[in-house]
Simulated scan of single mutants.
Amino acid sequence: MTVELCLSGKSTTEVAEELGLLPELESRWKREYQQKKQGNFSGQGKPALSAEQAEIARLKRQLREAEIERDMEPMLTT
Rank of each mutant, 00 (worst) to 15 (best):
N40R: 09
M72L: 15
E26M: 15
Q35W: 08
Q53I: 02
E69Y: 06
E69K: 07
L63R: 14
Q53V: 04
L59V: 08
E67N: 09
G45R: 00
P74Y: 04
L7G: 03
R28M: 07
Y33A: 02
S8K: 04
D71G: 06
L19H: 15
S27Q: 13
S42P: 00
M72Y: 11
S8T: 05
M1H: 13
Q35A: 14
L21E: 11
I68C: 14
R64Q: 14
C6Q: 01
E55G: 04
I68D: 15
S8D: 13
T78S: 10
E26F: 05
V15E: 00
M75K: 07
L49S: 04
K60R: 13
Q35N: 14
S8M: 05
Q44H: 15
L7E: 06
T78F: 13
T12C: 11
E73R: 08
A51D: 14
T13R: 13
L7C: 04
A57N: 08
Q34V: 07
R58L: 13
A66Q: 11
E32D: 15
L22E: 14
K37N: 07
T12M: 07
S27A: 12
E55I: 04
E65F: 12
S8W: 04
G45K: 01
W29I: 02
Q38K: 15
T13C: 10
V15C: 00
S11H: 01
F41E: 04
K36C: 04
L59C: 11
R31W: 05
K60D: 11
M75T: 06
E18F: 05
R64M: 12
G39T: 01
